[in-house]
């Protein structure tokens, strides 16, 4: 009987913790996932799945890394698993292409100059291959340290550094190329 009480009080705490996590990081996780999948509905679905997964994993969390890092790892792995899945590779890809096409034509009609510059940068980042995009996103948008990015992505720091350099180079080339076509 005593054991049942322990289980019960523990689960209540896990639910509380899940609420706190959703409150603190829900929006961040949604944006992170969107940065990978580029699709609003899909990002919303995956974010919900991530928090359910996080709840299920709470009993395995032993405090060896910060809770935020831990949650980001779950989120990134879950999203990448989706991107690798049969469903995504066979069905989603076409929608992605359509979506990007829509975005591009939106861009043409935008008139405010600063907004054009901003959206050009954001869009060019969003069109980078995932392995470069994630680094630009984690480093410049979320402002994580190289060391933490390496941990979250499960890679060593040197790989992260050199890939980030390559990502910036690629981004620069693409921005210059689009400036050329716009002129």
């Amino acid at each position: 009987m005593e054991e049942m009480t322990v289980i019960h009080s523990n689960t209540t705490n896990h639910e509380q913790l899940l609420d706190t996590l959703m409150h603190a990081y829900g929006q961040d996780i949604l944006q992170l996932v969107y940065a990978y999948v580029h699709d609003k509905t899909l990002a919303e679905d995956l974010t919900q799945e991530i928090f359910v997964k996080c709840y299920q994993a709470l009993s395995h969390y032993k405090g060896q890394s910060q809770m935020k890092t831990w949650l980001w790892r779950i989120a990134i792995n879950h999203t990448k698993d989706y991107l690798k899945s049969w469903h995504h590779r066979h069905i989603q890809v076409t929608e992605d292409v359509i979506l990007q096409a829509v975005h591009t034509s939106d861009n043409v009609e935008q008139s405010v100059v600063q907004q054009d510059i901003d959206s050009e940068l954001a869009q060019t980042v969003m069109q980078l291959p995932v392995k470069y995009r994630e680094l630009i996103y984690l480093f410049y948008f979320e402002e994580w340290k190289i060391k933490d990015i390496a941990h979250v992505l499960g890679r060593n720091e040197n790989t992260v550094k050199s890939r980030l350099r390559k990502a910036k180079q690629l981004l620069k080339e693409r921005l210059e190329a689009s400036a050329w076509t716009n002129d």
């Binding site: 996780i29 949604l30 944006q31 969107y34 907004q115 901003d118 940068l121 954001a122 869009q123 948008f141």
Partner: peptide, 17 residues
């Protein structure tokens, strides 16, 4: 350095948890 603002105002503007 302007990426954060750029993405907040464009990429993520319709996104809300």
């Amino acid at each position: 350095k302007g990426l954060k603002k750029a993405m907040q105002t464009t990429t993520f503007k319709d996104l809300s948890f």
